[in-house]
Design a protein around this nucleic acid. Structure first.
Lengths: 331, 331
DNA sequence: TTGTAAGCGTTATCAC
DNA sequence: GTGATAACGCTTACAA
């Protein structure tokens, strides 16, 4: 693999000149520049980023650690991060922590060891892992879920309020026995959505609470729905905290021959491309995923540029997209 | 940021001993090992992977360049790659080429410059970009789409045969005016699926061919479906080459008040979690995405271990999952 | 404008 | 079993 000295030799100049010619920072005789260019091209020279970064003490790589690559919410975030990073000349390394604190820790270590310029992550919830980043002074932005200690840049959604609004929407639509299917205890979004649900019920003077927690996956949604529906007094509507769970819930409703909307109203978090394909179409609480990612990247780049700037927490709003699944009357 | 010499100083040993103690390769006095461990811990020392890799002339990072992060087919591949790589001690860097030759080239350059141990990619189709990897001798595995030149490890699906089988299934179900909605010309999977469709029609002596190409996205599927349905003699069934397009096609069918299965049969490529939620459920040609990724990773690791081994091309089979959308009679 | 040379943080080779 | 030390490939003062 050719090195900078090979190019220098071939072009008849010093390595310093090659470096300068190729990076275009300092001014170099145009004749030499083209000699160097040609030599590099002929040798198939690719600068060794390892050596460069080691010398420069910096890299142009951002690490994005998300909790589920297969969740469209997170891939949209990834797109947002990528688009912003791209234009600033940074590459994005996507890591899948799989909602697993060990994997998260491992990827944080990798980011640390590879000296990533910054890290964006959706924390699993255990505070320990993040400390190492803070200690090192590596810029971090949390997305989707807040970071325990304060003083961190964050891009969040007011998810408690969103859950409350979604529940109020169901109440306004005439449902009275509203259940909630949410994620595991300890995951902040899961807890907040449950809290928002309770807020709405309390404000409306409704009871009882029909609550169920499960993994943020289709199987979890299915199990939770079954439990709720099998109870002596089953719910007439459900707030579902995530789109993967919604799939399980909808399967279970179909299996029980319950008509969506008419028998059981449903609102699910996160808009999905197939929402309008089911009958009736799925009402969702849409989170601005792409914008979350883009904003997180902007915050991260700003902090890399100025590590002393005060930490910022942005809170974006979710938006209710009303479709048929939360309507009692069939059209 | 503490370096190995800081640890050495604190532990009262040489940097060489720290390195040996921490890497556990060579044998070191247990007493010194623990002294080093403690010193490293107290300082919050993280070895600099840049320096290490520069010295070792190797990295433990695999680059995975896929053409669409938002397509579940590719994220499943990513999961497969990740699981295999993980157990072998490699990290996976996911890059989104977005079906764009420029971005692909850029990411290949990054992989080259960062000296990735190997690259897995779903090529956009332009041969130029891949050459640089070959020149450098960087191990590469192509997935989903073949690489122009031969002599490369590849994991593919016999997609032409799969398309033929899907079409034959529609014929067997009694459909006669079968259309095909496929991806852009030049993308190998799009071309192969069209070819397989034609194979089946020819074998059955059916005509005419109702074909439409569009971007591998929902909007593309919608436009293609509209064109086909608006024609004087519209199709009574459609083979759709990708799940994103299928969303558009299904929306368009619904808009035209056509009943799925009964009025227009549909088979789409790639299984999706929501296939059973629509009515009737969607018949799909399921590709073994996770397995493709896992197999690609295995091939790549094998080649990294032994660059001289003969190139291998694995072809996996797709599997028809018959559901209601390809059945004429409603249940 | 160009060249020389030091140094980034590791690991591996060589003596001891 | 341990410690000096050179080397990995690059960038950047500092000289010329």
């Amino acid at each position: 693999m050719p090195t900078i000295s090979d190019v220098a030799r071939k072009a008849g100049v010093s390595t310093a000149t090659v470096s300068r010619a190729l990076n275009g920072k300092s001014s170099v005789d145009p004749v030499l520049v083209s000699r160097v260019r040609i030599a590099a091209e002929e040798l198939g020279y690719h600068p060794n980023a390892l050596a460069r970064n080691l010398r420069r003490q910096e890299t142009a790589v951002l690490a994005l650690i998300i909790s589920d690559v297969e969740n469209p919410f997170f891939t949209s975030i990834a797109r947002g991060v990528e688009d912003v990073a791209q234009t600033a000349g940074y590459s994005v390394v996507l890591c899948n922590s799989d909602e697993n604190a060990d994997k998260e820790r491992r990827y944080i270590d990798v980011a640390l060891q590879e000296r990533a310029a910054g890290v964006i992550l959706s924390p699993t919830g255990l505070p320990s892992s993040i400390e190492r980043l803070r200690q090192r002074g590596t810029p971090v932005v949390a997305v989707d879920r807040p970071l325990a200690g304060r003083g961190t840049d964050q891009v969040l959604v007011d998810t408690r309020l969103a859950a409350r609004e979604a529940t109020e929407h169901l109440i306004a639509a005439g449902y009275r026995r509203i259940g909630c299917v949410t994620g595991p205890s300890g995951i902040r979004t899961a807890d907040d959505r449950l809290a928002g649900y309770r807020d709405a019920l309390s404000a409306a003077g409704l009871s009882p609470r029909l609550e169920r927690r499960a993994a943020y996956r289709a199987a979890g949604g299915r199990a939770a729905a079954r439990k709720l529906l099998d109870a002596p007094h089953p719910p007439d509507a459900l707030l579902v905290a995530n789109s993967a769970m919604a799939i399980g819930v909808l399967e279970e409703l179909a299996a029980a021959k319950l008509r969506l909307g008419r028998d059981v109203g449903v609102v699910a978090f996160d808009d999905v491309p197939w929402a309008s394909l089911i009958d009736p179409p799925l009402t969702v609480m849409a989170q601005p995923a792409y914008e979350i990612g883009a904003e997180a990247a902007r915050l991260l780049l700003a902090r890399i540029a100025d590590p002393a700037r005060p930490p910022e927490a942005r809170t974006l709003a979710a938006r209710l997209v009303e479709r048929g699944s939360s309507r009692r009357a069939s059209v």
